[in-house]
Nucleic acid binder design. Sequence first.
RNA 1: GCCCCCUUAGCUCAGUUAGGCAGAGCAACGGAUUCUUAAUCCGUGAGUCCGGGGUUCGAUUCCCCGAGGGGGUACCA
Length: 488
Amino acid sequence: MALIEPEDFRLEKLQELRRLGIDPYGGRFPDTVPLQELVEGFQENEGRTVRAAGRIANLRAMGKASFLDIKDRTGRIQLFFQLDRIGEESFHVHQQLEPGDIVGVEGELTKTRTGEITIFVVTFEVLAKALLSPPEKWHGLRDQEIRYRRRYVDLFTNDEVKALFLKRADIIRAIREFLHARGYVEVETPMMQLIPGGAAARPFATHHNALDTDLYLRIATELHLKRLLVGGMEKVFEIGRVFRNEGISTQHNPEYTLLELYEAYGDYRTMMDLTEGLIAHLARDVCGSLALPFGEAQIDFSPPWPRKGFWELIEEHVGIRRGDAKAIRAKAEQIGLEGALTQDPDWLALHVLDKCVEDRLVGPVFIVDYPKSVCPLARAKPDDPELAERFELIVAGMELANAYTELNDPQEQEVRFRMQVGHEDERERIDRDFLRALACGMPPAGGIGIGIDRLVMALTDRASIREVILFPLLKPQEEPDEKGPTPQ
RNA sequence: GCCCCCUUAGCUCAGUUAGGCAGAGCAACGGAUUCUUAAUCCGUGAGUCCGGGGUUCGAUUCCCCGAGGGGGUACCA
C-alpha cells in the first residue's frame, strides 16, 4: 500500500495527462521572470512575451476561457487561458490543472479589460501535479498542529508565515554582516562532544561505533570558542544549533539556534554595548522601527538600555535584601522550588529571580552582577568578589542573552568547576582539556550567548518559539515506515 | 510530571440544548458560461464525528481509559 493516498479526482487528471503523453512532472523551465518583477515592471514589458512559473493558487474556469492565479517566491500574477488562443488540445490539457499544481507558462504580458496585469498564455508546461489538495482558499490553514507538522503547506498557503521566515533569515544575515563588519570571524566547532560543557543542561547522548565511544550533542559552544581565543582568534562567533534534553514549551525547543561570540581584551560591558548596538540595528534596519509591538506591550529598543543589579531587582520585586539567606529560602519554599531547604541560597536566589522577576520585565533590560557561585565561567567583580561580572538580557519576559567577563585564570576555573552548585545532574563534568587551554593563557575577554529563536520572537511579536522555528519538534504521530529510523 | 481546553468531510467550522438517519461554506464531481478575480448559476457525491471500552433498545452526544494538539504550571543556572 502506498504511504500516501492521493485524491481520486487528482489521480484521474494525472492519468489523463499521462495518456496525452505529457509528463506531469516537468523539468527545467528557464528564463522565467519573478512575478513581482512582472507586475512592478509592467510599464516596460507591456505587450512582450514573457515566461513565468509558479504554483496555482486559485482557478476560475469560464467554459472556453479561464483565469488562474499563480504564486512564486516573490508574488502573484494572473494567467488567462483562452480556447481560441491556445487551441483545443492545449485547452484540454489546461483543464487538467488544479489549485496546488505547479506550471510554467509563456505568453503575452498585458492587462485584462478590468485592468488586471495578466499573462495571456500561449504555451505552458505542467511542472508538478499536486496529488493532494491545498487548504481552503478563504481561511487557509489554521490548525496549528498541521501547520507545524506540514510546514511546507503552511508556507505556501499562509503568506505571512513565509514572510516571517524570510524575516528570520534577514535577521540572521544582518547579524553576520554586523559582526563581520566589526572584525569577528565565524567558526564552526564540534556538535558531538565527549563532555558537553559550557552550560548546565541535560544532553542528548549518542554513540560512535568505530570509536566505540559515547558522545553527546553540544549544549553550548562556549568552551570551544574560548579555546579559539587561546589560539589567537581574538574575535570569534558561531551561530549554530545546540541541543538540550529538557522540556518543551512556548520558549523552549530541544534544539535551538544560539549565537555565541567572544572578544579578547573586552569584558561584559563590551558585550552590553555590542548587544545594544546589534539588536537596535536589527530592530531599526531589519524590522523597521526601534519600537516594536509585542502582544499588548510595546518594546523600545532605543539604546542605552537600563542595567539593573541582580540583588537590586530581587529587593525591588521580592523585597529580599542581598545575603538574607533565610528570606530567600522562605521565598523559595513559598513558590515551591525544589530543594528550598538544602540548596545553596545563591542558587535559590537565581531561581527566585527567574520565577518572580524576569517574566514581569518588558525590557530590554540588562540584569547585571550575579552571585559568583552560580556563574562558574565568569570572572568575579574586582571590587565585590562574591559577585560575578555576568549579565542576562531580558526582553518581553524572556531570557534573550547571557554574557560574562570570561574567567581566564585556569586554577580559579578548576576550583569554580569543583564548587559548582545546583542539582547533581545540572553540574558540568569537568573538561580537563579546556583547563589545559586556559593554562596556555587566554586573553581576558567578554563573551555572550544570544538565543536567536527568542530574539526573532521578540522582534516579530510571536508568543511561541514554534512560530519561529521551521520544523519544531513535536511528538511523532505516524508510525515510522519500515526503512525509517527505528526507536531504540 | 500535573491542571484546563480542543479533536466532526480534503480545508474552515456549525451541531447533537436534554441520547433518536450527520450539517454549512470552500474544495471535488456533472452541466451552463471566451475578461474573471472569494467568479456566478443549476445539479451531485462526499464522514472511523481522534481511538478503545462502558451505560443504553439506541452513543458523534453521557461516563471511563488512552492518543495527538493548544495553553498554563513544574522542570530547564
